[in-house]
């Protein structure tokens, strides 16, 4: 089976709707098929990977920790749009440090997140074979 470039586009804040959690589950399942997977966080999607989420007050499962497992699933192309952060008063420092371990480099931890401009994001999206929108 030829490898295709799959892009999962995340544009919704977590918890208010089920999109974020559904996307995460689909991504983890897709990882089993060893395709070339990328994730994009655009618009309110950037809230999915903010640091220090606490769901104690809303009685829902805090699934933010699961994004940190993506590196284990060889998902290490995570694009975050800078304009989306700027519009929301956020910076890269407000995001969880998502990393992956490079087995060929003595398990060195490398960052998975790339902050890109809107223009670069458009190019990244255009370079994919399949898009899934959440």
């Amino acid at each position: 089976m030829a490898t295709k470039k799959f892009m999962y586009v995340n544009r919704k804040a977590p918890y208010g709707t089920v999109y974020a959690l559904e996307a995460l589950e689909v991504v983890l399942i897709a990882a089993a098929f060893e395709q070339d997977i990328s994730l994009a966080f655009i618009d309110d999607g950037v809230y999915q990977i903010t640091k220090e989420q606490s769901t104690d007050g809303i009685g829902m499962k805090n699934f933010s920790a699961t994004y940190k497992a993506l590196g284990d699933y060889d998902i290490n192309k995570i694009y975050v749009e800078k304009e989306s952060l700027d519009d929301r008063g956020l910076t890269a420092d407000d995001l969880m440090p998502l990393v992956w371990e490079d087995e060929d480099d003595d398990w060195a931890e490398k960052p998975s997140i790339k902050i890109v401009s809107r223009e670069e994001m458009a190019a990244v999206l255009a370079a994919q074979d399949v898009h899934y929108s959440f």
Partner: peptide
């Protein structure tokens, strides 16, 4: 603002 919903999205009250 409902505090629980703010915290769930990683926004601290000092922001």
């Amino acid at each position: 603002v409902l505090g629980g919903d703010l915290a769930a999205r990683g926004v601290s009250e000092d922001r």
